[in-house]
C-alpha cells in the first residue's frame, strides 16, 4: 500500500469489493432460498443481509476517505502531494456517491426470479 497511486484507487477498490460481495450474496441467497423465510419484521432474511452488507460497504468507503484525509503526508514535492491528495479525495467522494446510488435498489426491488 505504499504507492500513492494505490491510495488514489483505494476507495473504488472497496466499492468493487462491496459490489462483488453484494451481487454474489444476492445470487447465492436466491439459489439456496434465503429469500423465502420470514424473520421478525423483515420480509426476507436475504434482504436483511444485503442491506447490512451495503451499509457496511458504505461505512467502509466513508472510513477510507477519512483515513485518506488523515494520511495526507508529503510523499514527494509539495505540488505532487497536493495533486495526489486532491485526486484521491475526488475519487473517494465519487466512490461514496456511487455506493449510495448503485445499491439503493436492495431496499425494495424484487430480490429473486418470480
Amino acid at each position: 500500500m505504499r504507492h500513492p497511486l494505490l491510495l488514489v484507487i483505494l476507495a473504488f477498490v472497496v466499492w468493487s469489493g462491496t459490489f462483488l460481495l453484494v451481487y454474489a450474496t444476492q445470487a447465492t441467497g436466491c439459489s439456496v432460498g434465503w429469500h423465502n423465510d420470514e424473520i421478525a419484521f423483515w420480509r426476507s432474511p436475504l434482504r436483511f443481509i444485503l442491506i447490512v452488507l451495503v451499509i457496511i460497504g458504505l461505512v467502509a468507503i466513508v472510513g477510507t476517505l477519512a483515513w485518506l484525509r488523515r494520511r495526507n503526508t508529503l510523499t514527494a514535492a509539495l505540488e505532487t502531494s497536493t495533486f495526489l491528495d486532491d485526486v484521491k479525495t475526488y475519487v473517494a467522494i465519487g466512490a461514496i456517491f456511487s455506493s449510495a446510488f448503485c445499491f439503493a435498489g436492495v431496499f425494495w426491488l424484487t430480490l429473486c426470479p418470480l
Binding site: Y23, A27, L50, F103, A104, G105, T110, P113
Partner: peptide
C-alpha cells in the same frame, strides 16, 4: 432472467 434487484446495481452504475 436475472432478478430485478441485481439488474438495479448494473443499471445504476
Amino acid at each position: 432472467g436475472i432478478p430485478h434487484v441485481a439488474l438495479s446495481f448494473f443499471s445504476a452504475a
